[in-house]
Design a protein around this nucleic acid. Sequence first.
DNA 1: TCAATAGTGTCTCTTAGACAGTATTGC
DNA 2: GCAATACTGTCTAAGAGACACTATTGA
Lengths: 228, 228
Amino acid sequence: MYEPSDFPPFAVTVDLVVLTVRADELCVLLVRRGEEPFLGQWALPGGFVRVSEAVDDAAVRELGEETGVSGLHLEQLSTYGEPGRDPRMRVVSVAYLALAPDLPVPVAGSDAAAASWVPIEEVTTLAFDHARILSDGVERARAKLEYTALATAFCGGEFTVAELRRVYEIVWGVALDPRNFHRKVTGVEGFLVPTGESTARDGGRPAALFRRGEVGVLSPPLVRAPGS
Amino acid sequence: MYEPSDFPPFAVTVDLVVLTVRADELCVLLVRRGEEPFLGQWALPGGFVRVSEAVDDAAVRELGEETGVSGLHLEQLSTYGEPGRDPRMRVVSVAYLALAPDLPVPVAGSDAAAASWVPIEEVTTLAFDHARILSDGVERARAKLEYTALATAFCGGEFTVAELRRVYEIVWGVALDPRNFHRKVTGVEGFLVPTGESTARDGGRPAALFRRGEVGVLSPPLVRAPGS
DNA sequence: TCAATAGTGTCTCTTAGACAGTATTGC
DNA sequence: GCAATACTGTCTAAGAGACACTATTGA
């Protein structure tokens, strides 16, 4: 009744677009491929989904293996299933977007010769169709900053309003008015929770420290336009 | 070098959430399953991806087979890959969202005993994890009406402002002010293109007919709130 | 003291929403 | 005429953006 021939076999992989903000640049975690195909080229980290493992769980596992950190924001991005996207065999890849604060040096995975944070602007050729996946991931991140509290995922546990503003400015590539930004983000109910502490690490008058709040959706949203 | 055991075999399917607005209700296209498992239960239309076929192309093919119509709006929704979501074998399903105008009676596919438009409110149990997929699809559609011109995909080739407003009201489940709505949608550059024709099919003063414009993203967006 | 950043106040202009009022049809 | 729907005008309150001003630190 269920002939194996009815169900053509596919391999399923997960690919990760892991973004962070470091040194005033939006960076992506890339690995240098240690085997064919595309030996020696930069690629997104990822790997095969195990037979008894949920696809989402495979993404969590790979993210932990690559970054050495757990608990990062992780969401499904899209699925890429063109025949021929992997020259070896028919592979369907489920891509995920992860956002991380500025982490220490990345951990090289077992199947990757080296891992490194690369500024988005400096990425040229990537293995497979990873350039397109990266592009989709960056655009998703940019869009979600507008109407969700996702920007806090780029910050550490505690951060100042100025640090949060830098995230927006770097991801969007625009300048934002510090005063209006301050009024806006502190005015959104549940977005930021004051810790009561303050820090002078940015110079000048000490700034209040905040933690991310419970709110996931921002209303009103922050609009991606200069001068706001 | 590439041992088959390295790449556990999966079956890959596409599932379609096809939505339409008919008789003042948001409806989804469902099929009654003609075989095990879940024999006789309602399910989303879909099927296996062929070995030489892109996943996106499989969705287009299935949509054509089920509706008998081509050129509908179709976008990828999400991918569902829990082990055990199909009792037969390991299946990863890529779900798609399609929006259609009020179509004639749906075509029964070869693997489905019957196909039918079912109001969202009346859907109870579905086969597999299709209830969750449907829920994700409806939420995606509701969200995208706010900031894209997607609502026109529910209308025929030519439509009045009132017909477009009914789409928003039915999908969102809210009442909108006809006067403000008219000013808003006609004010968004490139959203609606006047045909020059008019119709009195809604009674009262004849209304101008419009075609969908080129614009995909609405700015400013329409906000999902009563009284707007 | 100055330089630097944090945070507040205020002004103006745009827009959303409420709703009055006019226009054009069928009956 | 009346009912129904299409469309336009106007008022008000709220928000966005521009930017002056005050506050608090280090050097």
